[in-house]
Design a protein around this nucleic acid. Structure first.
Lengths: 299, 299
DNA sequence: TGCCAGTTATATCCATGAGATATGAATAAA
DNA sequence: TTTATTCATATCTCATGGATATAACTGGCA
């Protein structure tokens, strides 16, 4: 038997004998009989090429080589146990790094409390948060810059999987001075002749088209007087009377005094907050995160 | 299979697959067929409780847990190899510490060059040298303060083994002014009426008795006027004309102008320079030293 | 001196399981 | 669709780890 024939079994047995200095007690501790223990120790000694234990039928002692190997084998056994623990913790998704991309409006939902809960449950996962527009987030997911993304109305992509977390109705946002400002609800075609301030189309083809289709159902094409990249900007502009906008319902959370949010009656198109990730190769880390996300948004 | 069922074999196999990312090539590298390799990897995954490799029949990839285990298993395999190397070096007696005790007169023989040669051959052995009288050296050997001793005419001790390295004839040392000073050789009974300066009897019963027997063969009991613990002291005293002495032949190496060394004709008692050590449990380190000592003194 | 007790080594047998061979299943490329 | 590649499954064989029984050795004790 050469070195490649040495197994952890030999080290476990040797450590037991070296610690007990007694084959019988060591065998008991290992839950095997004494003769096979003697045999395995002999094989180890043959593989190493030197005696490790001096036995006369009255006492067992370690040779110098045996003392050295005892010290090192104890280390090795401890190390292997630790290695397995550590591997299991990663396997359970308890340790590691997870980069989560999100669009700004996702932070207007239960996402913040979900992230908070995740940190509580998995304190040893380093959670990196990065804000994107949906289109940029899809790129980031594809090239691995982000592991999981919260997107809105993402375009379908091969290699990326998306699932709807939260379907939100659209609302109209108008200036507080606007004639429609105090209505409980309006119909989309009430806005046909209004100037529009809309989210920039660069954020995603699909998101843009949903708004266009909504207007189309009202029988008009919106007259766009301004585009802007953030809902806060858009709401401020709407507040000045520059125009009206159509937004997912969650945006009402950041509505201020100068604007009013009005429900859109009869609209059957929804804005979708989605969970997006690379289809293949979900780690346990990612699975754990996804599971919590689904649970949180289901309510 | 739980953790105690994990063997180095599993780690070796896993590292091969994880490095090759290909079961077939890994199996070749391990000189086994592919199916048993797959089986062993599966067992390892079951023991750990998490998948380590993601395989679809086109490619093999590591999971996060797999990457962790790969890194750690590589370390473990390297460590075990180093442990065995290190153990073997100690087994070969190439590393360690050896305490050698000796009597002063041993340094008048080939011992110094033997020690020099030993250091050349075993540079990683720390050689500790301690000077004793024979009786003290035997104590030191018994209680483990010294591992190997160079003694002279040691008393027999159970548990200590002694072997003769160098039988030396006795010589007479007289003052340069002494009537016998210029004889090529004398007989022991030529000294019958001389005053004697002798080595202290405390150094050992046997050594003392040998000198007594030598005188007895000359038909007299020596008249001892002085005892001293070092040959250099004795020779100085002899040089002053205080008396004569009987010494092992090697002492002539430190004879100075005021004394003369004279061969003793017809004496058949020899002083023995010996090698002494605990009988049981000679380490390779000690064996190597003893072998070189025997070789050196044989010449 | 010889017997006893305690301990390790040896002999032999059995059963587990590591590994081989043959084949199936899955998937990407042609 | 076919083919080539690759991993998994099924089955068999044989090596070997472990059990049992016993021998050999050694120190203590009568």
């Amino acid at each position: 038997m050469d070195i490649t024939g040495i197994e952890l079994r030999h080290l476990r047995y040797f450590v037991a004998v070296a610690e007990e200095l007694h084959f019988g007690r060591a065998a008991q501790r290992l839950h095997i009989a004494q003769p096979p223990l003697s045999q395995q120790i002999r094989k180890l000694e043959e593989a190493i090429g030197h005696p490790l234990l001096l036995r006369n039928s009255r006492q067992v002692r370690l040779t110098g080589a045996g003392e050295e190997l005892l010290k090192r084998a104890q280390q090795t056994l401890r190390k292997v146990a630790e290695d397995i623990q550590s591997t299991r913790r990663i396997g359970r998704g308890e340790v590691g790094t997870l980069t989560v991309g999100f669009i700004a409006s996702a932070m207007l939902t239960v996402l913040p409390s979900m992230l908070s809960e995740y940190r509580r449950r998995f304190p040893e996962v380093e959670l990196r948060l990065r804000e994107f527009y949906t289109s940029g987030l899809l790129d980031a997911l594809r090239n691995g810059t982000a592991d999981i993304g919260f997107t809105r109305d993402a375009d379908q992509e091969k290699s990326l999987h998306t699932e709807v977390l939260l379907p939100e109705p659209y609302i109209a946002v108008v200036s507080a001075q606007h004639p429609l400002a105090d209505k409980a609800s309006i119909r989309i075609d009430d806005l046909r002749s209004e100037p529009f301030v809309l989210f920039s189309p660069g954020v995603g083809q699909n998101a843009w088209e949903k708004v266009m289709r909504l207007c189309q159902q009202g029988g008009f094409r919106p007259r766009i007087v301004q585009e802007a990249p953030h809902w806060l900007t858009i709401l401020r502009l709407v507040g000045t009377g520059m125009g009206v906008t159509i937004a997912p319902k969650c945006v009402e959370k950041i509505a201020h005094q100068e604007v009013r949010c009005v429900r859109l009656r009869g609209a059957n198109i929804f804005s979708h907050l989605e969970l997006a990730y690379r289809e293949q190769s979900l780690t346990e880390l990612e699975e754990n995160f996804l599971t919590l996300a689904r649970e949180t948004f289901r309510q």
